[in-house]
């Protein structure tokens, strides 16, 4: 019996950390009816010191427009390898973009900040339109944007 419990404890100890490494997180971004073309949105994370950590999503597939996502572009040099496999279509005015990502647990409650840069053709760029700390307590709370984004919320 003791052997059985020991084996169970051992397997649990081995499996549990792997299960807790990441979790699905849904980021919902609702745009204002700003009356322009589809918005390019760059979702990326900075660490507690404000240094670029990585990108989470790019809404808009044409690299020639990325320079207008100025903070993201400055941090990455426009390197599209940063967003391979995490790029989708631009988002129309008044629409809501919902992205579900398998994110590392280490991103939460560790000083990381989720940024969103926004740009719309023939309209003003909006770097760091939203900058919201990633915390478990902040899950489900709506965060207002400055220009094109009405609100952003992430849920776990």
């Amino acid at each position: 019996m003791k052997t059985l419990f020991a084996a169970l404890a051992l397997t649990t100890a081995l499996i549990a950390p792997g299960m807790a490494l990441a979790r699905p997180v849904t980021v919902t971004t609702t745009l204002n009816a700003y009356g322009g073309n589809g918005a390019y949105l760059a979702f990326y994370v900075t660490d507690a010191q404000g240094a670029y950590k990585g990108s989470l999503w790019m809404a808009g597939g044409k690299s020639k427009y990325y320079e207008h996502l100025s903070d993201w572009y400055r941090a990455t040099g426009g390197n599209t390898a940063e967003i391979n496999g995490i790029t989708g279509a631009s988002v129309g005015a008044g629409r809501a973009l919902s992205i579900t990502l398998d994110l590392a647990d280490a991103l939460f409650d560790a000083g990381y900040v989720l940024h969103v840069d926004a740009a719309v053709e023939d309209m003003r760029n909006s770097p760091s339109e939203i900058a919201v700390p990633l915390t478990t307590a902040g899950s489900g709370q709506a965060n207002p944007g400055r220009r094109y984004i009405a609100s952003l919320a992430y849920g776990m």
Binding site: L21, A22, R23, P24, V45, K53, G54, S55, L56, W57, M58, G61, K62, S63, T80, A81, E82, I83, N84, G85, I86, T87, G88, A89, V91, G92, R95, A96, L97, S98, I99, T100, L101, D102, L103, A104, A106, L107
Partner: peptide, 26 residues
């Protein structure tokens, strides 16, 4: 231009787990 979601794996930038691929809905 970047590879669209679903065509390649997300970048290994330490932000993603090794689980499900990104899902998007508008």
């Amino acid at each position: 231009n970047p590879a669209p979601a679903g065509t390649v794996a997300p970048p290994a930038n330490g932000l993603f787990g090794n689980g499900a691929a990104p899902q998007v809905q508008v």
